[in-house]
Design a protein around this nucleic acid. Structure first.
Length: 297
DNA sequence: CTAGGATCCTGTCAGC
DNA sequence: TGCTGACAGGATCCTA
């Protein structure tokens, strides 16, 4: 799925486009994507004004004037597309950014007011249907189980101490599995896990217990750097999906050093990047830079 | 409690 | 061409 920088990019885009608008209608094309009753939609969503768009980890939170919030997880293939006075899309990059909507990946459709031509729609597209939208009282959002147990936000304040405490709870795990764990540090997914470990020159299969505090701090800093770089490159949006010439781009090219670069050469040492499997996930690694230090037992 | 694998889905791609 | 299996920017559930 979209990871922290991609979701943050969506948040920023939506903040500009939909705050202050009213939701006029909701069309749920796939019920499992948004489990809610017709009466709840009627009572808490229709005619509500969008007050704010927030993010926690990889979760988007759209606060409504009804004191309810739409909590959205894009998971692997979720994306949000706005069509109206202007066209905008962010999240999982695919052709639904640019094609006619709704299409076969559209799961939920919101009709909004306030567009010059009277047509203003927000599409929740999600090919694999892993993503979801939930309607939750705004005050209860932070008490949702998944949200309550999240680790610190990597790009806010000083997450280091909290990260160290939490990552040590997974001393026996491969470090990649540990940093993918959202209760250790929020928002890292497969891309930034690989990028962080490449940056810190740590092999993804290294057990956490074999890594010093100092090296763990380096991994965190490396993740933060990769995320900031991705954010300033503009995240994964319609704009980075199709460039000004109408040609397809790949926003990974703007910041990634190893992710999906297997077969290419390591930007640091020139060795060929290989792809292995760690924690059940495809993992990209430079075996020359990232030596496996298996010490204990 | 932790750790690892299966699972939820659809689509695409490599290899026969 | 058609089939088959592997795999995918995530997290949960189940088992050990």
């Amino acid at each position: 799925m979209p990871e922290l920088p991609e979701v943050e990019t969506v948040r920023r885009g939506l903040e500009n486009l939909i705050v202050g608008r009213k939701i006029l209608n909701v069309d749920i094309l796939n019920p499992k994507s948004f489990l809610v009753s017709a009466s709840e939609i009627e009572e808490f969503v229709v005619d509500a004004e969008i007050i704010a768009v927030r993010r926690r980890a990889k979760v988007l939170i759209i606060d409504l004037s009804s004191n309810y919030s739409l909590v959205i997880h894009l998971k692997m293939t979720g994306q949000i597309v706005f069509r109206g006075s202007e066209n905008w899309g962010g999240g999982h990059p695919n052709d639904s950014f640019v094609g006619d909507l709704p299409d076969r990946s559209t799961r939920v459709e919101f009709e909004l007011n306030g567009s010059a031509d009277g047509l203003s729609k927000l599409f929740f597209n999600d090919q694999r249907k892993f993503g979801w939208i939930k309607l939750i009282p705004t005050l209860a959002v932070e008490k949702m189980e998944f949200i309550a147990k999240l680790g610190p936000e990597p790009l806010i304040g000083n997450p280091e101490t909290e990260f160290l405490t939490r990552v040590r709870r997974r001393n026996n795990s491969a470090v990649k599995a540990a940093i993918l764990d959202q209760s250790v540090i929020a928002g890292i997914g497969n891309i930034y896990a690989d990028e962080a470990l490449w940056g810190a020159k740590i092999h993804p299969a290294t057990r956490v217990r074999d890594i010093s505090d100092e090296q763990l701090r380096e991994i965190l800093q490396s993740a933060i750097d990769a995320m900031n770089k991705s954010l300033s490159a503009g995240g994964s949006t319609m704009k980075t999906y199709v460039n000004a010439d109408g040609k397809k781009g790949n926003y990974l090219d703007l910041f990634a050093n190893v992710f999906r670069r297997d077969g290419a050469s390591c930007p640091r040492c020139g060795a060929i990047i290989t792809k292995i499997r760690i924690a059940g996930r495809g993992t990209h690694v430079c075996l020359k830079c990232q030596k496996l230090r298996a010490k204990s037992q």
